[in-house]
Structure formats: structure tokens, C-alpha cells
Design a binder for these strands. Sequence first.
DNA 1: CGGTCTCTTGACGGAGTTCAAAGCTAGTGG
DNA 2: CCACTAGCTTTGAACTCCGTCAAGAGACCG
Lengths: 190, 190
Amino acid sequence: MHNNIIRHIRKFLEINEIEVETVNKYLERHQFKKKEFILQEQKVCKNLYFVEKGCLRMYFINKKGVEQITQFALDGWWISDHQSFMNNSPSDYYIQTIEESTIVSINNQDLDKLLIELPHLEEYFRIIMQKAVASAQHRSKLLYEMSKEEFYFHFSTSFPEFMVRVPQYMIASYLGLTPEYLSELRKKNL
Amino acid sequence: MHNNIIRHIRKFLEINEIEVETVNKYLERHQFKKKEFILQEQKVCKNLYFVEKGCLRMYFINKKGVEQITQFALDGWWISDHQSFMNNSPSDYYIQTIEESTIVSINNQDLDKLLIELPHLEEYFRIIMQKAVASAQHRSKLLYEMSKEEFYFHFSTSFPEFMVRVPQYMIASYLGLTPEYLSELRKKNL
DNA sequence: CGGTCTCTTGACGGAGTTCAAAGCTAGTGG
DNA sequence: CCACTAGCTTTGAACTCCGTCAAGAGACCG
């Protein structure tokens, strides 16, 4: 068993072996095959998900009936529909594996219990949330200042590992452009 | 003195009068006139800012030398450049008052001290960060599924108070469209 | 090797930008 | 309290980035 979640927590704060046991008590760990669903539309997103290994996409179905990807998550990333998670409201999203993946999840009540038992960990979750806010701000700034062409080149040079692990039409969807236009951009820059 | 920040904290958790004193010890409260700067580009964003009363905008200067607004903050909202705040790195942004405003701020070291003295409050900051993530996700979804026209009408009906407090060219900038096109949309829908 | 996904090509169209100029509005100082 | 000016908003014409549609070429899986 890889224990990347514990390693991830230890990047931000120190926890001893007894505390590790407590954490593990509340976490669930699941193995998913390629293209399995972790969250389906209309269901409440009951968990925060941590990708120990693998690759996920989060998407919704737009008015035209087309899948619109809003986020990816690779090894070591947290992902969730936070609106749904916090309010126990039905989600608009699907979360699905792109590759075979190992996912750690924790639901709202268990998170509460864990944080009561180990108040120490509030800091960890505060920090990862704050980092999520920072990266949302950063992404939003890129969207404001770049054309779709620039955004594509920025993305492909910043995250080359995505380009090999994720099919192009998914990247196009995430970047908010059509597969046709993405193809044109690729040709332009070979 | 209005104490909206304490009222805001009490929406999420209970704190007694002694704890209120501790919180107040670490917070600074400043009064700003219209168009005063709270953060300047190149400076490190040393604080988290809470708007007790008033209205702020956050913007950067794009390649063409034009101000690009990325966020507003009204009464009861937190705002910051989180990247700069967390890493002590120089910011790309300006934060400026649109109206006369009362701003509460806390810097990184004082936040640490406050949270050591009152670990209880970690939860408050975790929750407000999580809510910020949720609203970033929501905003991003809107951007994916709406045309600029739809986005404008959505915004103007969802936040009518903005339309009266903030000049149109700022709303246009925030929505990512030109003042000319915004004007066209307004005419279309009178 | 056949069929279903995925990626590419090219013609065309439209949402939204750019530029230039004129009409308004509101804040400032006299 | 009025007049002036700088800044904000509107108009219209030309243009461009990027989406749509349709069809063909690969690529992958059973």
C-alpha cells in the first residue's frame, strides 16, 4: 500500500505514528479501473477525494448535451464539488477516472470527527484550501490575459505530463476550445 | 465602531467575549477614502483583508497596459492575493477602494500567532477558504457554459447592488468584455 | 480485420473586439 | 452654485478569432 496521503500531510505539518493511525481510521481507500465513476450528476458529493495514484477528470453536461471538463486531478491532488459537499446538495458534476486510480476519500461527518479528535489537522485542511484558492486565482488571471491560443501553449508547456496522459479532446474541453481548433493550433506549432 | 468581522466569525462558530478580545488584539482596522490603494503591484500582499464596510476592486495591468479587474469585494467579504500572501512573493495585483471603506486586515505572522493562541479559529479560516473554493468552482462553471451575453445578464440579475455601486466600465472589465460591447448589450435589453 | 472512437482539414459564419468620434455626467475649483 | 473639463458611455463600421458543420484519415480494441 502506498501512503501518499500521509506523505502529503507531512509536507505541511508533523504528525506522529499514533496520529497516522487516527487519520487512517477515518479515510477510505478505493481502487478504480479506467473510466469508472467516482461521482455521478444528481448525487450529493459526499466526499473530499485525494488521488494517491492515477488521473481523474471532473465534468458536467452542457446545454448542448456535450461533456464540459472543468478540472483534472493527478497524483497528489485533492478534488471535490465543494458546493455539493458543504451543503449536501445534489451535484451538477461527474467525477470519473481517466486511468486506473487509487483514491482516498473522506466524508463530511468523518471529517468533522477526525478534526475533533485531531484538531491539529484543521491547519492542514486550511492550508490545502488556501492553496486551492490561490491556484484558482492564478488560473482566472491566465484566462483574463491570454487568448485561447496562448492559453493552450501555456498549458502544454507548463504541464507536459498531461499531454501524454490525457486524450486531446479532453484537453480541448478543459481549455474551453473545440477539438478542431486545438488541432489547428497543434499544426501551427510543430 | 461596527464589528462586522466578529459577527461574521459568529456565523460559523461560537466565540466568547475573552476570545473576541484576543481576535481584536491581532486585527488592524483602517479607514480608506475613495480610490485609495490597499495593495500595489510589486509589493508583497502581507495581509488578508476583510471588508467591514465599503467596496473594493482587485486588478492587474495587462500586456496592453489596460487595467483588468479580476475580483470585487463588498461588505462582509474577504479578499487577498493568496499566492503572494502565502509565499511572500511580490504581487501582480492592485487592490483599491471604489468607495470610502473600512477594512480589517491581518498579516501572516499575526495570523499564525492568533491561530496558536486560539486554535479554535482554524476552523473559521478553513471554512471561509472552502467557501472561496466553492465559489471559484461555481464561477468557473458559469464561464464554461455561458456566452458573454448570458454571463452579463446572469451577473446583472444576480448582483443588482453591484450595478448601482460600480461604474459600467469596471463591470465590463470584470466580465471580460469591452465597454462598447456591454453598452450594446444594455441597449438590446431595456 | 471490422467498427467505433479520436484526430485532422477546410469552408463558412457569427459573437465579440478594435478604432474613431460624438454625446453625457459628475466632480472640481473659482 | 455655476462652468469647465476629464472621464464615462454610446454609436457604428470594419475586422478577427474561434466555433460549426461535414467529411475523411488514423488509431485502437475486441
